[in-house]
């Protein structure tokens, strides 16, 4: 494991090293166990003793070029992974029994995407990685499966749908921002899995609501959103200020 990491470490400036070291611990917890691992992940995501997360007021800027687009994807995967890790760690879940193991799968998939992007960015664009984001899920009621009409907070399925739809639209919109096609390929391998998640969650909320268009979209084409539009939605779920202005420049 350390053999694989060493080249990346040597290319990276100092601040990156603690991040990489933490991947190993976090990954071990994530993949080695089932429920216990998910709990550990959730705790790791919240703990303040391992790293110095950006304070709430900090702006997160994404730099330019392909590194910025990868970091953009990484930011969204961080949010998704943190959300599903929190769902997976619930001791009393409002989800149906059949849904619980599936949401554990979603948690694992998103954690894999997050770790994959972090590893890829650190290897190919050492020193550009954005800090760990601090999730802000106070608009989500984790005791509700789906929100009632009178609820002001999202239920778990509502939030999952929002995250997955947002992820698909973000990847679709980011395609034109990549300078080289190599990253387009790998983004394509991830976005279709996000779309599968979206269809799964949508069908849970309303059977047969997969791939439906809400609002103005065209039949048979999933949405695409610019980074600015995506962050306008994602900002609700993050403490730090996300700055989309340079992504893909």
């Amino acid at each position: 494991m350390s053999d694989t990491l060493r080249p990346t470490d040597s290319q990276s400036p100092q601040p990156v090293q603690p991040l990489l070291a933490r991947i190993k611990r976090r990954s071990f917890f994530m993949y080695a166990g089932a429920t216990a691992g998910a709990t550990a992940l959730a705790l790791a995501g919240c703990s303040k003793d391992e790293t110095t997360p950006s304070s709430a007021a900090t702006n997160v800027s994404f730099g330019t070029g392909d590194a910025s687009v990868l970091n953009y994807a990484y930011a969204l995967e961080q949010l998704e992974a943190a959300f599903y890790a929190k769902v997976a760690a619930l001791t009393t879940s409002p989800l149906l029994a059949a849904e619980v193991p599936y949401f554990a799968k979603l948690a694992t998939h998103e954690a894999i995407h997050r770790d994959f992007l972090r590893t890829a960015i650190n290897r190919d664009f050492g020193g550009t990685i954005i800090p760990d984001l601090t999730p802000k899920f106070d608009s989500i009621d984790f005791t509700k499966r789906v929100k009632a009409a009178t609820d002001t907070k999202l239920g778990i399925l509502d939030a999952a749908k929002a995250f997955e739809d947002l992820g698909v639209a973000a990847y679709n919109g980011a395609a034109k921002l990549f300078k080289g096609s190599v990253y387009l390929g790998i983004a394509g391998q991830i976005v279709s899995v996000e779309a599968r998640h979206a269809a799964y969650v949508r069908d849970l909320i309303t059977p047969g609501s997969f791939a439906t268009n809400e609002g103005t979209d065209v039949l048979g084409f999933d949405r695409q959103l610019t980074p600015t539009a995506v962050f306008a939605i994602a900002q609700t779920f993050v403490e730090q200020k996300l700055d989309a202005s340079t992504i893909g420049q």
Binding site: H197, D222, Q224
Partner: peptide, 16 residues
Amino acid sequence: RAALRIHAVEAQHSAH
């Protein structure tokens, strides 16, 4: 870009 947006829809079809 249109093809990429179709790509995601096909994934939703498959998942359904």
